[in-house]
Simulated scan of single mutants.
Amino acid sequence: MSARRIFIAAVVSALSLLTACTGGGGGGTAALPSGPDLVKKSSEAMRTVKSAAFTMETEGSPAVQVKKAAGRLSASGDADGTIQVDMAGSLLEIQFYLVGDTVHFKGVTGGFQKLSRSQLSAIYDPSVILNPDKGIVQLLANALDPKTQGEEKAGGADAYRVSATLSQQILDDMVPGLTQSVNGTLWIDKATSRLLKADLPMNGGKVIVSFADYDVPVQVTPPADATP
Rank of each mutant, 00 (worst) to 15 (best):
S51D: 04
K134A: 00
A154D: 04
S116K: 09
D86G: 14
D125R: 03
G155H: 09
K153F: 00
V207Q: 07
L32H: 01
D189Q: 04
T165A: 12
S74F: 07
K67T: 11
A157I: 03
S61K: 15
A198D: 02
K106I: 05
I123N: 02
K147N: 06
E59V: 10
V12W: 08
S163T: 15
M56T: 10
L73S: 11
V12I: 13
R47L: 01
I188R: 00
F7R: 13
T29L: 08
S193P: 08
G25L: 10
S121Y: 02
P33N: 06
M46Q: 10
N203A: 15
K114I: 04
A198W: 02
A3W: 07
A30S: 12
P217R: 11
I8V: 15
I8N: 02
L171Y: 11
A70V: 13
M56N: 09
L144N: 08
G77T: 09
T29N: 13
V11I: 15
S210G: 11
T82V: 14
L91Q: 11
A224R: 10
T19M: 05
G71T: 01
S76V: 08
A141T: 01
T102F: 03
S13R: 01
I170S: 05
I170W: 01
I170M: 06
Q168V: 03
D145P: 02
M1N: 05
D125W: 00
G35W: 06
G60D: 09
R161V: 00
S43V: 01
F96Y: 14
I83L: 15
T29A: 10
V64Q: 09
R4L: 02
T227E: 15
N131D: 02
D213A: 10
D80G: 09
S167T: 10
L166N: 02
Q180F: 13
T29M: 04
Y160A: 01
F7V: 10
N142W: 00
S61T: 12
R5C: 02
K67L: 12
D199L: 07
G35R: 07
V49P: 06
A52P: 08
I188Y: 00
G135E: 02
A9T: 04
L92K: 09
S127I: 03
K134Y: 00
S163Q: 14
V128F: 04
F7S: 12
T102E: 10
D215I: 08
P223R: 14
V182S: 05
S16T: 12
A9W: 04
V49Q: 14
D215Y: 04
T185Q: 04
G81F: 05
P223S: 07
D78N: 12
D199E: 15
G111H: 09
L171G: 13
V11D: 06
F7D: 09
S43F: 03
M87G: 03
A53W: 10
L186A: 00
L196C: 02
P126H: 05
A141F: 01
R117Y: 08
F7I: 12
A122F: 01
A164T: 05
L17C: 07
I188F: 00
I129R: 03
